[in-house]
């Protein structure tokens, strides 16, 4: 279970970005590849823990699951795998290790609360 340390890294990255921009974060959007080695449910739980006593407390973690996309050398096309248990083209069955997507573990975007400027 390494999701807590991953969650803490996510919080660090989001805090760093929000402080540089001087904004309040309400949600963190994460791209999570099927090959990242991270369990989504454990991560969501860990995120809440990692946020405690930080300016991110109460913020949400929104996870976008990224499937594994490979390049099939026979079809000469990129294909989405339906399972990480079979690295083969779903159309023609040719085995392939040419992974084009699916290893992501990336803080993609921040949802921020924008304070309306007070005139005067």
């Amino acid at each position: 279970m390494h999701e807590l340390s991953i969650a803490m890294s996510i919080v660090d990255a989001a805090l760093d970005e929000s402080q540089r921009r001087g904004v309040q974060v309400s949600a963190v959007h994460l791209r999570l590849g099927a090959l990242s080695g991270v369990v989504k449910d454990a991560l969501l739980f860990s995120y809440e823990v990692a946020c405690q006593d930080t300016p991110l407390q109460g913020s949400r973690l929104i996870v976008e699951d990224i499937p594994v996309v490979v390049f099939c050398p026979r079809c000469q096309e990129v294909r989405t795998l339906s399972s990480v248990q079979l690295f083969a083209c779903p159309e023609c069955g040719t085995p392939t290790m040419d992974v084009r997507q699916g290893k992501e573990l990336e803080v993609f975007a921040l949802e921020i609360e924008e304070e309306e400027e007070v005139q005067g």
Binding site: I6, S9, I10, A13, A14, E17, R21, V23, S26, A27, H29, L30, L105, E106, V107, F108, A109, L110, E111, I112, E113, E114, E115, E116
Partner: peptide, 17 residues
């Protein structure tokens, strides 16, 4: 009042490692 806005940051979480 405040309204949410999305800011793209694109940070690899394991970059340090």
């Amino acid at each position: 009042m405040s309204e949410p806005r999305l800011v793209e940051v694109r940070r690899n979480v394991l970059k340090q490692n």
